[in-house]
């Protein structure tokens, strides 16, 4: 067999086409620039941009699990919001227990309290995810309509359980001492907590990318998203992999719930359901199953919400849906369409 018979046949796409491929990445700075022009005042713009990034990253944390769960097993989980709410309630309960730590002037104790709250909330939602997958999702693999109905039902049950354990009222918890207030940069005021949220979000995104690109589990997840059947034919149990991914996704939703709760300082049993509107928009914009797309989609939604809330509060709510419509007209499968073997 000679080399000639199998000559390399990789052709580079024209420059223009390759640029368009990379375009989604440019959308975030482009939107930020547009924001700067529209807002005018750099200090206000900085405040809004940090707020937008923080909001976007928190939505990303909540949405990332949902998108991988869809990609891997084609499961539409309308109950994802339940993990957000439960995570927030569990996290807040821990923060109340650790009241001494949160009100202490020590930054270390403050952050330890938040860390503990996040850890316990993630553990609780991961376990809840296990039960949810086994009891509610497993019987309806491959049937979208049933998935929507039954996971909606799961969401309602979870909300009612929150009423049972925590009562019907909303819950207030002040952020720990050192996470209150703002840094002042020149004329701009940047809330400390938002910077923490940005930090956690970025670290998480980098970690997720590392896991997906460089570990065997990550390779299996990506291979499974494209062709689960072939992964099984290679000898791996996709359903067990899916259960792990589902639990991880639920834990991330729980983490997002705690962070979102601390951001608002008020939580209700319905908070997850409410934020799910944005989460679904982000997942759809990004391309169902794509973590990168979800990341960019979340940043776009976060920034746009904050700019429009400042510029034209009345259209703030519609703006994200408008963004989704525009992006889907451009790329009907989302920013990063996921390859599916059929």
């Amino acid at each position: 067999m000679s080399e000639a018979t199998i000559k390399p046949r990789i052709e580079k796409a024209p420059l223009g086409e390759r640029m368009i491929e990379k375009l989604p990445v440019v959308l975030v700075p482009a939107l930020a620039m547009l924001g700067l022009i529209a807002v005018g005042n750099p200090a206000t713009w900085l405040t809004l941009t940090v707020a937008g990034l923080a909001m976007g990253l928190m939505i990303f944390i909540m949405a990332s699990g949902l998108t991988v769960v869809f990609g891997l097993m084609d499961v539409i989980n309308f109950g994802h919001g339940a993990f957000i709410s439960v995570g927030a309630f569990v996290g807040f309960t821990v923060l109340i227990w650790l009241g001494g730590w949160t009100s202490s002037p020590s930054v270390f104790l403050n952050l330890s309290a938040v860390f503990m709250a996040i850890l316990v909330a993630m553990l609780a939602t991961a376990l809840m995810g296990y039960a949810f997958e086994r009891v509610i999702v497993m019987p309806v693999y491959g049937e979208h309509l049933k998935q929507i109905l039954v996971t909606m039902g799961g969401l309602i049950v979870a909300q009612q359980l929150i009423y049972v354990f925590w009562g019907p009222d909303e819950m207030h918890v002040a952020r720990p001492e050192s996470l209150q207030g703002s840094f002042v940069l020149g004329e701009a005021a940047v809330e400390k907590y938002r910077l923490v949220a940005v930090g956690i979000g970025v670290v998480l995104f980098v970690a997720m990318r590392y896991v997906l690109k460089s570990t065997r589990i990550g390779l299996l997840v990506r291979a499974g998203v494209e062709n689960g059947e072939m992964v099984e034919a290679l000898g791996y149990r996709v359903r067990r992999l899916f259960l792990m991914v589902f639990m991880a996704g639920s834990a991330l939703a729980g983490l997002g719930g705690v962070m979102w709760g601390l951001y608002q300082e008020t939580i209700t049993a319905h908070m997850g359901q409410e934020i799910m509107v944005l989460v679904f928009i982000v997942v759809i914009i990004g391309g169902l199953g794509s973590v990168e797309g979800c990341f960019i989609g979340a940043l776009l939604v976060g920034l746009l919400s904050n700019y429009t809330a400042f510029l034209a509060p009345k259209v703030a709510l519609v703006s994200t849906i408008g963004l989704m419509v525009i992006i889907l007209m451009w790329r009907p499968q989302g920013l990063y369409p996921v390859v599916k073997a059929k």
């Binding site: 390779l219 299996l220 990506r222 494209e226 059947e229 034919a233 290679l234």
Partner: peptide, 20 residues
């Protein structure tokens, strides 16, 4: 029949996953 190649992965990663 459709070869079942994971196009999102590299050739090396395709081979690595096959080695169980």
């Amino acid at each position: 029949e459709n070869m079942g190649i994971f196009t999102d992965l590299t050739v090396a990663e395709n081979m690595t996953l096959a080695a169980t």
